[in-house]
Amino acid sequence: ATNIVGKVKWYNSTKNAGFIEQDNGGKDVFVHKSAVDAAGLHSLEEGQDVIFDLEEKQGKAYAVNLRIK
């Protein structure tokens, strides 16, 4: 899926990971530091509006192509 709108639920820069809550009510999506880095960002803030694509690896959904809304 592409161009999904959501809000950062939480992001821990020590653990280099967090979750994004989908505005469409879907399951929360894992976001890794690699996606944050690829977006040219240093970190994510709780409640921040984002747009992202979903990629599945080994049955788990990940946020990729992250951008700030």
Score class of each variant (00 low, 15 high):
42 H>L: 13
22 Q>Y: 15
5 V>W: 11
31 V>Q: 00
56 E>K: 11
34 S>I: 08
60 K>A: 07
57 K>C: 13
66 L>E: 01
53 D>R: 02
39 A>P: 01
4 I>V: 11
26 G>M: 09
55 E>C: 14
20 I>L: 10
45 E>V: 14
51 I>G: 02
63 A>M: 02
50 V>Q: 00
17 A>V: 15
26 G>Q: 10
44 L>G: 00
8 V>R: 00
56 E>N: 10
21 E>F: 10
10 W>R: 04
65 N>H: 08
58 Q>K: 12
55 E>V: 15
39 A>F: 03
42 H>M: 12
56 E>F: 15
2 T>R: 13
24 N>T: 09
39 A>N: 02
11 Y>R: 02
51 I>Q: 05
67 R>M: 05
35 A>C: 05
19 F>K: 07
23 D>Y: 15
62 Y>F: 10
64 V>R: 05
29 V>I: 11
35 A>Q: 10
18 G>C: 04
16 N>W: 10
61 A>I: 15
43 S>D: 11
3 N>W: 06
47 G>L: 03
55 E>T: 09
45 E>Y: 15
23 D>V: 15
12 N>D: 12
48 Q>D: 09
2 T>M: 12
6 G>A: 03
16 N>Q: 13
36 V>H: 01
53 D>G: 02
58 Q>G: 14
11 Y>V: 09
10 W>V: 05
2 T>A: 09
12 N>G: 03
8 V>H: 00
12 N>V: 06
3 N>G: 11
58 Q>N: 15
69 K>N: 12
45 E>M: 13
51 I>V: 11
5 V>M: 13
4 I>D: 02
3 N>R: 07
39 A>H: 02
63 A>K: 01
36 V>D: 01
25 G>C: 08
25 G>N: 09
47 G>C: 07
9 K>R: 09
12 N>A: 07
68 I>A: 07
52 F>I: 03
53 D>C: 04
65 N>T: 03
6 G>E: 01
9 K>L: 06
69 K>F: 14
16 N>D: 07
30 F>P: 06
58 Q>T: 08
61 A>C: 13
9 K>F: 03
42 H>S: 12
57 K>S: 11
38 A>I: 08
12 N>F: 07
50 V>R: 00
21 E>K: 15
15 K>V: 11
63 A>N: 01
16 N>F: 10
57 K>D: 08
1 A>Y: 13
21 E>H: 10
7 K>S: 06
33 K>H: 07
54 L>I: 15
65 N>C: 05
33 K>I: 07
4 I>F: 08
2 T>W: 12
52 F>R: 00
43 S>M: 11
49 D>N: 12
25 G>Y: 07
55 E>H: 11
14 T>P: 06
48 Q>I: 09
11 Y>D: 01
45 E>K: 14
26 G>W: 07
63 A>H: 01
13 S>L: 11
19 F>H: 04
37 D>V: 15
40 G>C: 09
51 I>H: 04
53 D>N: 05
1 A>E: 09
47 G>T: 03
37 D>K: 13
60 K>S: 06
6 G>Y: 01
53 D>Q: 04
22 Q>W: 12
47 G>K: 05
15 K>N: 08
67 R>D: 03
29 V>M: 02
22 Q>L: 13
53 D>W: 04
47 G>N: 06
54 L>T: 05
3 N>F: 06
33 K>S: 09
10 W>N: 04
29 V>F: 05
9 K>M: 04
52 F>H: 00
60 K>M: 11
34 S>K: 10
53 D>H: 03
22 Q>F: 11
11 Y>F: 09
42 H>W: 11
6 G>W: 02
38 A>C: 09
54 L>W: 05
46 E>N: 12
5 V>K: 15
59 G>Q: 05
9 K>I: 06
20 I>F: 04
12 N>Q: 07
23 D>G: 14
20 I>C: 02
27 K>P: 15
18 G>P: 01
68 I>M: 09
6 G>K: 00
51 I>D: 02
63 A>E: 01
66 L>P: 01
42 H>P: 12
29 V>A: 04
69 K>C: 13
40 G>T: 04
37 D>R: 14
9 K>G: 02
53 D>S: 03
33 K>F: 09
23 D>Q: 15
38 A>M: 09
34 S>H: 09
1 A>Q: 12
2 T>S: 10
31 V>F: 11
13 S>D: 10
55 E>Y: 14
69 K>G: 11
18 G>R: 01
27 K>V: 11
48 Q>E: 08
1 A>G: 11
69 K>V: 14
52 F>S: 00
29 V>L: 04
37 D>Q: 14
62 Y>E: 05
58 Q>E: 13
35 A>R: 03
48 Q>M: 14
27 K>H: 10
1 A>T: 13
37 D>H: 14
37 D>E: 14
31 V>G: 01
62 Y>Q: 09
17 A>I: 15
11 Y>M: 06
32 H>P: 07
20 I>W: 00
30 F>C: 06
